[in-house]
């Protein structure tokens, strides 16, 4: 066999690897230590880079301008339940919404397209962006297009930035002891559907991504809660485990989750068992975690359940003074710590 040029010995950790993009601790370290260096001054009331939240919140007069940006790469570009266009809109709308900004002023769309990409595929993507915008009550107000040579990227990259105004912002750090944790829908749908589509695992069944804009649902929760919502986050890459761990760490509380209360569809549960994966580690694109003061929890639960995307919403846990910064799972039999996945979850055999 030929020795391939360009692949020589390299010391470890000199290069960025895929785990740095997987949404867990490795990614946060990369951001904190390299990418956000010099911008981490968190001395103001505003939410900036130092907060490492879903987006930024800047004061304009007595209102908040909430800004978020997200680059979307996904393989395959079209997958059961959605495509990169729907993902780009929903992802950005949801990042705004979980900061309390549910009325989107406008979205930008910047596309980098690989030479040779099919026109018809672009149209399909554009169509689903329009559809997702309609669902979210948002519109794209400006954009940018670049084309790169064949092989210089894999198909298409879409960056979307969203801006919105809000009277009050909700961070992911506001939990306190006693707060209840709501999960608006079943976990694992997106990540399992993508893995099945991508890796040729031969799994047949109703595995579909949950990708959807949640701002309508979250508006309902906020209106019902009247200030009793203390923190929100969308558990995307890194799954519910990463989202809740981050919330527990930033809020300095422990979170105890009741395993039996966490909604997971039977097919996702089954796929996770076959592949040896933990549904808590799998990515979601259509659910949110909501921290609520205990006295408002039932009302918010009822309000979310009345929304078409929140029918399986459940109260899955409670914040506690004990075990600060820890995520604890009550399995019904015993208890264990839940930790974040490192790297993309992979099917395991043994």
């Amino acid at each position: 066999m030929m020795v391939r040029p360009g692949i020589g010995p390299q010391p470890r950790d000199e290069r960025v690897t895929l785990k740095h993009g997987a949404g867990g601790r490795a990614m946060r370290m990369l951001i904190e230590e390299t990418l956000a260096a010099g911008f981490l001054d968190g001395s103001t009331d505003e939410i900036g880079l130092a907060a490492l939240d879903d987006g930024a919140a800047l004061l304009i007069g007595d209102r908040w301008l909430v800004v978020t940006t997200d680059s979307h790469v996904i393989h395959p570009i079209f997958f059961p339940g959605g495509d990169i266009g729907r993902l780009a809109i929903a992802g950005t709308v949801n990042d705004l919404a979980v900061m309390g900004a549910t009325e989107v002023l406008g979205l930008t769309s910047a596309m980098v397209i690989e030479e040779g990409f099919l026109h018809s595929d672009l149209e399909r993507i554009q169509h689903s962006m329009q559809e997702a915008c309609r669902e979210a009550g948002a519109k794209i107000v400006t954009g940018d297009t670049k084309v790169m040579g064949r092989g210089e990227l894999d198909g298409i990259i879409i960056n979307t930035t969203g801006v919105a105004l809000a009277d009050a912002v909700v961070s992911d750090a506001g939990l306190s002891s006693g707060d209840r944790i709501l999960l608006t829908g079943p976990i694992g749908d997106h990540g399992i559907a993508l893995m099945a589509a991508r890796r040729g695992l031969g799994l047949e069944g109703d595995l579909r991504s949950d990708v959807a804009p949640l701002n309508g649902l979250i508006r309902r929760a906020l209106d019902t809660a009247k200030g009793a919502i203390t923190a929100m986050k969308d558990p995307t890459r890194g799954g519910l485990a990463s989202a809740l761990t981050e919330m527990a760490e930033k809020s300095q509380v422990g979170i105890v989750i009741e395993d039996a209360a966490v909604p997971v569809t039977p097919v996702v549960r089954s796929a996770a068992e076959i592949l040896g994966l933990d549904p808590f580690h799998i990515a979601n694109e259509g659910v949110a975690v909501i921290g609520v003061r205990p006295d408002a929890a039932d009302a918010v639960l009822a309000a979310v359940r009345a929304h078409s995307l929140g029918q399986s919403c459940a109260i899955i846990g409670t914040c506690t003074d004990e075990h600060p910064k820890r995520l604890i799972l009550d399995t019904g039999i015993g208890r264990r710590l839940v930790t974040e996945p490192e790297g993309e979850p992979l099917p395991r055999i043994c």
Binding site: R4, G6, I7, G8, P9, Q10, R12, R15, V16, T17, L18, K19, G343
Partner: peptide, 11 residues
């Protein structure tokens, strides 16, 4: 190195 390291280097 691991296979993941080799992969990051292009294998």
């Amino acid at each position: 190195k691991s296979l993941a390291d080799a992969q990051a280097e292009g294998a």
